[in-house]
């Protein structure tokens, strides 16, 4: 397996007055060339923070407390100098941002912004513009019109597609997509996902989706990591997770998706509110909302276990099964 990214024991904390919030707690995962994975979880589960950590750009006042991020089996990215980091940015790893509408400089035409990226990475401007034209066409956009437009002259969906085109500009090997379809209507969602899937097949690039909506991306990802309160609670192949989730939180998450056909009475939301990261105790973070909570869930943190189904899960319900996974 050709590993393009490996994250080990990533922990990100946010100091809040006297206390610190562990927004990301000891998360590990890796992704192979051409593979597509998804980090799924509700708001505040730390998935976007991980996306920014991949660029060593955690929003203030967050601090990466510990962990390693290695691209292409190289050295720890977090310990590299700024110059070497900048080489990895966009050329090797690029990103489609959440609310991509606001990620373009409002004062410059798209053409200038393409040229600025080209210049920063020592690419010939004309080559970059030609490349951008080709990419914009694959996104079903009129290249000349878009290149000569200011961001405010484009619609939200168009800006989203421009943002994806920019992400592909330098032929990266990994693209991080933070809620790439959230701001789009259902039809644009489908077309954007279709485009992404085609590009992935053609160029054999790896995709990392960050999303709260497992149903939308289930067609385009291979593996899913379900996150809760900053840790991965279950991971496995997407079909396994969707059809047969093991962790009570994953069960609840899947069970809360309304079916396209069938009775809505089968849909159940998760009870309770997302956990307050300030009030986490030593036990399982999901204990307060878990329908199957046991005594030891309140005191012992469950460790990741590899199940016979192929999924890995961090839950005391499965203590008797499988074996512990080193993280």
């Amino acid at each position: 397996m050709n590993e393009v990214l490996s994250v080990r024991g990533l922990t990100i904390v946010f100091p809040m007055g006297h206390r610190t919030i562990r927004a990301v707690d000891n998360v590990s995962f890796s992704i192979a060339k051409g593979e597509s994975i998804a980090l799924v979880g509700e708001s505040g589960s730390g998935k976007s923070t991980i996306a920014f950590a991949l660029f060593n750009n955690v929003p203030q006042p967050g601090i990466i407390e510990s962990g390693e991020i290695r691209y292409f089996q190289g050295g720890n990215f977090l310990e590299m100098g700024q110059a070497s980091q900048r080489q990895v940015f966009w050329e090797k790893v690029s990103m489609v941002f959440q609310a991509a509408q606001n990620t373009l400089n409002p004062l410059l035409r798209i053409r200038r912004q393409v040229e600025d990226i080209a210049q920063a990475h020592h690419v010939n401007k004309k080559v970059a513009i030609d490349k951008a034209r080709e990419l914009l066409s694959t996104m079903y956009l009129d290249p000349t019109r878009v290149l000569d437009a200011y961001p405010h002259e484009l619609s939200g969906g168009m800006k989203q597609r421009v943002s994806i085109a920019l992400a592909l500009l330098l032929d990266p090997e990994i693209i991080v997509l933070d809620e790439p379809t959230t701001a789009l209507d259902v039809i644009s969602q489908a077309s954007v996902l279709k485009i992404l899937n085609e590009i992935r097949r053609q160029r054999n690039i790896s995709l990392i989706f960050i999303t709260h909506d497992i149903s939308v991306i289930s067609q385009v990802v291979d593996r899913v990591l379900v996150m809760y309160a900053g840790s991965v609670v279950e991971s496995g192949l997407v079909q396994k997770i969707v059809r047969d989730p093991s962790h009570p939180y994953a069960k609840g998450l899947i069970g809360s998706i309304p079916p396209l056909v069938g009775d809505l009475s089968d849909v159940h939301g998760l009870r309770g509110n997302p956990v307050n990261l300030l009030s986490l105790s030593g036990g399982c973070p999901f204990a307060d909302r878990c329908p199957d909570v046991m005594t030891r869930c309140r005191t012992d943190r469950p460790l990741m276990r590899q199940l016979s189904t192929g999924n890995a899960v961090a839950c005391h319900l499965y203590d008797a099964e499988g074996e512990e996974v080193r993280t």
């Binding site: 660029f55 750009n57 940015f89 990103m95 941002f97 990620t103 373009l104 400089n105 409002p106 920063a120």
Partner: peptide, 17 residues
């Protein structure tokens, strides 16, 4: 704090830009 500044950093634009 605008998104496009963060995006510009991640796009690898140099400090002067």
């Amino acid at each position: 704090n605008e998104d496009f500044m963060m995006a510009a950093r991640i796009r690898g634009l140099p400090k002067s830009k």
